[in-house]
Amino acid sequence: MPSANPSRVLIVGCGASLRRDDQAGLRIGESLAAGGPPDGVEVELTESPAGDIPALLEGRSDIGLLVIVDAATAGEHHPPGTWRRFDCRRGPCQSDLRDGEPNPASSGALDASPGRKPWVRDASTTSEPRRGDGGDGPYDLHGPGVQAAIELCTTLGTLPAEVWVYAVAAADTGYGEELSAPVAAAIGAMTCAIREDVRGWLTGGRCERA
């Protein structure tokens, strides 16, 4: 049953701590949690979002806004460090992550020009399961990511009324602990923006990021 007042915010920083730029979501989550998040805001970190996000939302009808922060691979028109916010409840966010077309309804650092090459693709998932793909496809239990989490929560009816995904274009998701320079440079701005957006949501409802 929906909470009468789903007024809390859950921020989930996603990524892999030893895969260079893929740790961006974790770093941002750590920054947001540092010193204690504001009242009404919870911050969690996960390296396995497909399982953890649905688990975090189970029984939490008091969550009105879910914020997911993650790195993503990008097309050639959007250099590493470029970031934007997708508003999953206002457009086909799942398709955006899967197929690469930015969500026209979302606003953020980038414009969404129809017909342009896809710039965001969730590196950990593919659109349809395939057998015998010879790689880490959807049959790899490590494969499912944010998209699968959103899909599962949607099916379960546990997805909050509002879901924002902040994605930053990664340059390098190979092994290592260091962020690339452009992604490292983006983290501060993303952290500030998320903090500001969430504060706006808490105080007045929607936040239209421009």
């Binding site: 649905p54 688990a55 189970e58 029984g59 599962l152 099916t155 379960l156 546990t158």
Partner: peptide, 13 residues
């Protein structure tokens, strides 16, 4: 079977 999945999520967590 949403109740099964929700239960599993609770238990696993």
């Amino acid at each position: 079977h949403p109740d099964v999945v929700k239960m599993a999520l609770r238990l696993k967590k």
